[in-house]
Design a protein around this nucleic acid. Structure first.
Lengths: 230, 230
DNA sequence: CTCACTGTTTGACAACTGTACAGCTAGTAC
DNA sequence: GTACTAGCTGTACAGTTGTCAAACAGTGAG
């Protein structure tokens, strides 16, 4: 200690590097403390940096959170997609992999749910966060619709409306993820995957009437007596 | 004005009445301001009452929120159930009514979603709120399983596992509700209802393999080539 | 070496938070 | 008309919070 008269009191970094470090610190704070982690001082402490620095690199706290939201959302989506896109696998198999990745331990970690709740709760008030939400949701549904499009192109699969199918599958995935996050003991991840696969199975079977295109005689003649939707 | 020397500065109320008034004020605050509405002073102002009164009737703020959570959750559930239970309707029709009630304008109001997010975000930290969540979730799934049980008892409906079916349907409903709350323009309520009915249709059709009981030859012989779940 | 640039810290600001408690007062019982 | 009780108020407290201007100090150029 005595040999070093003055160790550097802080380290200087490129704005880009510092911004990314602050984003990571934000994600870690939200993960650990949820909404209470959303504090400039706490985030700065997590990053090993003074509180004032945060307003120096970001116009406001919410701008930092919006950036963190975008980072995490895209990171998770690409992570799931990488699991799904296996070269030699068919559409059904790819979907199954997508489901499995969606209910992997990392995705069911309680901190992730806490983090997501903070993002969602800011959508109503903060326009920047809302913009991120809109963008990432579109990206998420596009990914699902892409996989469903490959499925529809398969042999023996009846034609179905891609957009509402993507909406339904996204809802089922989100709903199961939320239920599992709220109560980890409610059901096992494998059950969630099976329920998603069930839905895809029904889709392939032509058993989801409102999703079928008008003149679909591909596999099911008369779907049901009560299938009188537009 | 001058004729009244001193109008009563406050009104006295029975503890029960005052507690309920505070709960209503809490719900209104959360509805309007989301997480920012969670303030003793703001809630007290909404109730037209001093801030100190809130700790006089409730041991803490979170106890008040837990009570508000229970009130709202049960109120919504019974409201939806009243819509669903039509005496002369069959199980399918009752489920349809349940879905319609779930996506009625009152349920899709943005403030309701903001309120729910606050409740959810407190689950991780507050044991009282967590207890309410566990209780209301069980009540919600019981309601769904009851309707699904009636459906299973219908003629021509294959036997299926009630519990995972309730989980799946609850997830689909929740997921659609959240997507609609996050982005009101994503799809119309009627679409959400149709997607839920689709799922029920597939269930009746025996097209959800993992939900079928082991030896089910009721309607579908071989469900699918890829239906090799346990 | 010295200098200048700029990322970083510091300290202070006003506004807010939940809770505690002493005292006031409304409404009722007598 | 009086007294009492219990609901209620208002203030005080020790914490927070985000933001900002000014001072500081790494770090590379000259």
């Amino acid at each position: 200690m005595t040999h070093k008269p003055h160790a550097p009191k802080f380290h200087r970094a490129t704005p880009t590097v510092r911004r990314e470090a602050l984003i990571e610190a934000t994600l870690e704070c939200l993960r650990q403390h949820g909404h209470d982690g959303l504090s400039a001082r706490r985030i700065a402490a997590e990053a090993g940096v003074s509180a004032g620095l945060i307003t120096h690199h970001f116009p406001s706290i919410s701008a930092l959170v919006a950036a963190a939201y975008e980072t995490l959302a895209m990171r998770l989506l690409t992570s799931i997609q990488q699991h799904a896109i296996e070269l030699d696998a068919g559409p059904r198999e790819r979907l199954r992999r997508f489901f499995e990745a969606s209910f992997a331990p990392a995705l069911l970690e309680p901190g992730l749910f806490s983090t997501w709740l903070v993002f969602w709760s800011m959508i109503a008030h903060d326009t920047a966060v809302r913009a991120v939400q809109d963008r990432t949701y579109v990206a998420y549904r596009d990914a699902l619709e892409s996989l469903l499009g490959q499925l529809r192109a398969s042999k023996g699969v009846p034609a179905f409306k891609l957009r509402p199918a993507g909406i339904a599958l996204a809802a089922l995935l989100d709903g199961l993820w939320i239920e599992a996050s709220l109560n980890a003991e409610a059901f096992r991840p494998a059950e969630a995957v099976a329920l998603c696969e069930d839905w895809v199975h029904a889709l392939c079977y032509g058993a989801l009437p409102s999703l079928l295109v008008q003149r679909s005689e591909s596999r099911i003649r008369r779907v049901a007596s009560s299938a009188g939707h537009d």
